[in-house]
Amino acid sequence: MRRRSFLLAALALPALRLPAHAAQGPEIRVLKSPSCGCCTAWADHLSAAGFSVDLRDVPDEQLWTMKDRLGIGEETASCHTAMIEGYVIEGHVPAEDITRLINERPDALGLAVPGMPIGSPGMEMGDSTEPFTTLLLLADGETRAFARHG
């Protein structure tokens, strides 16, 4: 319950609000470092998939403090953190995995793609890709594979 309360508090974070992306589908709030371009590219991926993206810049220290409080450890961390319908989304998670998560509604904290795998949404670099796994973040700190890509 504490993490969900923190999620709600994080949604109220005073932050520099960037122009909203397309406003069609479920709203996802993305918190990112002001200097990160791949986070903006990931937000564009979500927008193209029909999500309404609320993209916010937050100071790095505040972002990492929030990750720690949400239970996102170094092994599951990436460069940005998002929230949608009570779930946390960490890193370059593909839009289709987020859609599946909110449709299936598993008992979990959310999803993570640790690091910044080349070829994941927002990390496209020509034809280069590397396989990656989207992890389901469980409340007890454990993870399990949710989807495999590449």
Rank of each mutant, 00 (worst) to 15 (best):
2 R>H: 12
3 R>F: 03
4 R>C: 00
4 R>Q: 12
4 R>W: 11
5 S>I: 12
5 S>G: 00
6 F>A: 01
7 L>R: 12
8 L>F: 09
8 L>T: 06
10 A>N: 01
10 A>C: 14
10 A>S: 11
11 L>V: 00
12 A>L: 14
15 A>W: 07
16 L>E: 15
18 L>T: 15
18 L>Q: 13
18 L>P: 00
20 A>G: 09
20 A>T: 12
22 A>Q: 12
22 A>E: 13
23 A>P: 01
24 Q>A: 13
25 G>I: 12
25 G>S: 07
26 P>M: 04
27 E>N: 00
27 E>G: 00
31 L>P: 06
32 K>F: 09
33 S>V: 07
37 G>P: 03
38 C>A: 07
39 C>E: 04
40 T>A: 15
40 T>H: 14
40 T>D: 13
41 A>E: 09
44 D>T: 14
45 H>C: 02
46 L>M: 15
46 L>I: 10
47 S>V: 08
49 A>H: 14
50 G>W: 14
50 G>L: 09
51 F>T: 08
51 F>W: 12
52 S>H: 15
53 V>L: 08
54 D>A: 14
55 L>G: 02
56 R>C: 11
57 D>P: 10
57 D>A: 15
59 P>W: 09
59 P>S: 04
61 E>T: 13
62 Q>E: 14
62 Q>N: 02
62 Q>I: 12
62 Q>C: 01
62 Q>F: 04
63 L>T: 11
64 W>L: 11
64 W>K: 14
66 M>Y: 10
67 K>I: 07
67 K>Q: 08
68 D>K: 15
70 L>I: 07
71 G>V: 07
72 I>C: 03
72 I>K: 05
74 E>M: 06
75 E>D: 15
76 T>H: 04
78 S>N: 05
78 S>H: 08
78 S>E: 04
78 S>W: 08
78 S>C: 05
78 S>T: 04
80 H>G: 03
82 A>I: 06
83 M>F: 15
84 I>R: 05
86 G>C: 04
88 V>H: 02
88 V>R: 02
89 I>C: 03
89 I>D: 01
90 E>Y: 09
90 E>D: 05
91 G>R: 08
92 H>W: 09
93 V>E: 02
93 V>D: 02
94 P>S: 02
94 P>Q: 03
95 A>F: 11
95 A>R: 10
95 A>M: 08
97 D>T: 15
98 I>F: 07
98 I>C: 01
99 T>N: 00
100 R>S: 08
100 R>P: 01
100 R>K: 15
102 I>Q: 04
102 I>M: 10
103 N>L: 07
103 N>Q: 15
105 R>V: 07
107 D>C: 00
107 D>V: 10
109 L>I: 09
110 G>I: 06
113 V>S: 03
113 V>P: 11
115 G>H: 10
116 M>N: 03
116 M>A: 05
117 P>N: 02
119 G>K: 03
119 G>H: 06
121 P>L: 02
122 G>M: 07
122 G>F: 09
123 M>Q: 05
123 M>N: 05
123 M>G: 03
124 E>A: 05
125 M>H: 10
126 G>K: 06
128 S>A: 13
128 S>D: 10
131 P>L: 00
131 P>W: 04
132 F>T: 02
132 F>G: 00
132 F>E: 00
135 L>D: 01
136 L>K: 06
136 L>I: 08
137 L>Y: 10
138 L>M: 12
138 L>E: 13
138 L>Q: 14
142 E>G: 06
144 R>I: 01
